[in-house]
Computed example of a mutant assay.
Amino acid sequence: MKCDASFVFSDAMLGYHFNADHPFNQKRVVLAKELLAAANTLDESQIIAPKKATEDELALFHDRAYIQAIKKAGEGLLQDDGGLEYGIGTEDTPIFQNMHDASSYLVGGTLTAVDAVLSGKVSHALNLGGGLHHGFKRRAAGFCIYNDAAVAIKYIREKYNLKVLYVDTDAHHGDGVQWAFYEDPNVCTLSIHETGRYLFPGTGNINERGIKDGHGYAFNLPIDAFTEDDSFLQVYEAAFKEIAEYFQPDIIITQNGADAHCYDPLTHLCATMAIYEKIPALAHELSHTYCNGKWIALGGGGYDSWRVVPRAWAQIWNVMTTGKHKLGDIPEDWLSKWQMESPVSLPATWQDDKNIVPTIPRKKDITEKNYKVLQSALKYTKHRHT
């Protein structure tokens, strides 16, 4: 099945850059985009530039005092340790120049995707710069300043009055989006993630089900460390199908963090590229079953930036545009261009070797710096319904 789709991208999205050593970087978006171009599956005519979200749009979810603090921080005007109140200036979410503008383009990218789909221009849209699901109403956390998904869902509810199903397969719990709609029966959230017993942000228990009118519209499926493909996919497929049938959404938004892979240095799950073929395929299928194809996909986490994330994210687009994931060899010109810069050997095929978890323990890949980033994130993240 072929469907029209839009790919949101411009160089303005690349300004979201903490520092050279930070694990969250926009190089992943560039690598995925160029991989698709090299595979002849992304045409320039399908690319749309993100708008910059306005302050009024950001304030659909974020507190205006918080927005002003982010603006001041990015201009070097925030006083002393004022950023700690808002979760910035930490090791996980450091202050950087023009951070408000850079973050606003990522949010604007998701709003651009929403309007492209809901105006009827396309059936699907992909914003790999989005998926910043740890942002809270007045606090940054876990590499996320503004929460583009939460803003976009508020925007959909206000402008289009549609029921939204949000599905999050990042290895980290989609806490910011869940708490934003914890009382709202018109927004259903599903998060499949590594249990918070071992991993930031420490939330996402099965008993987090929503409150008041929103009770019964939040779903969490925490999975244990070292979970592999079959178990992950069994949970994902069963839950997504049942919840979609129960909720009957008007539009589906997926957050597609690629950090459940066994190579990822910040998590403990042991999936392979096999799950990143099935994850978008089911979202594509269910969007056509329940929503006349209305599906918006976002990026998110994923910290093996060279081997895993470009292939995983490119498969979302492959499914969006053809209904199928890509198989076979990675284009030689893409490999040649990026191998010199990559710190690891790039895979020659779209799949992992036989899609089998490597025998070398992946935990050895966890660096002291990444460990400190995680500890800092845990220290500064307070789990409130804000």
Rank of each mutant, 00 (worst) to 15 (best):
V167S: 13
A180Q: 12
G174V: 05
V187D: 03
E208I: 12
T195V: 00
G176I: 08
F200Q: 04
G202K: 03
A180V: 09
D175I: 04
A180S: 15
C188R: 00
H193R: 02
H215V: 15
E194T: 01
D170E: 12
D213I: 02
A218F: 01
G202C: 04
N207A: 08
G196N: 10
D184G: 14
T195E: 06
F181L: 04
N220K: 04
Y217A: 08
T189R: 06
P185F: 14
K212A: 15
W179Y: 13
T169A: 06
D168C: 07
V164F: 04
E183N: 15
H193M: 03
N186S: 08
G214R: 05
R197M: 03
N220V: 12
G196C: 08
A171Q: 01
G210R: 08
F181N: 10
F200A: 03
P185V: 12
P185M: 15
A171P: 01
V177D: 11
C188I: 03
Y217T: 14
F219S: 02
Y198A: 05
N207R: 11
I206Q: 03
H215K: 14
K163S: 01
F181E: 07
T203V: 12
K163M: 00
N207G: 09
V177G: 10
V187H: 06
L199S: 03
E208W: 00
I211G: 00
G202Q: 05
N220G: 06
V177R: 03
G202S: 09
D170I: 15
S191H: 10
K212N: 13
G174Y: 02
F181W: 11
N207S: 10
C188H: 06
G196Y: 11
Y166G: 05
G202Y: 02
P201T: 08
R209N: 09
S191I: 11
F219I: 15
F200G: 05
E208D: 10
G214Y: 09
H172G: 11
N186V: 00
G202W: 05
G210S: 12
N186C: 01
E208F: 08
E194P: 04
D184M: 09
A180I: 06
T189E: 08
G216I: 06
R197D: 14
N205R: 13
G202V: 02
V164I: 06
H193I: 11
I192L: 15
F219K: 01
K163C: 00
D175K: 00
C188K: 00
A180P: 15
P185S: 13
G216D: 10
G202T: 03
A180M: 12
D213W: 12
K163E: 01
E194A: 03
V177A: 07
T195D: 15
N205T: 13
A180C: 15
A180E: 12
Q178K: 13
V177Y: 11
V177P: 12
V167T: 07
P185N: 13
D175C: 02
G176V: 08
T189M: 09
E183I: 07
Y217H: 14
T195L: 02
Y217P: 01
Y182T: 07
A171W: 01
A180N: 12
L199N: 01
H172V: 10
H193N: 06
F219N: 01
G204R: 04
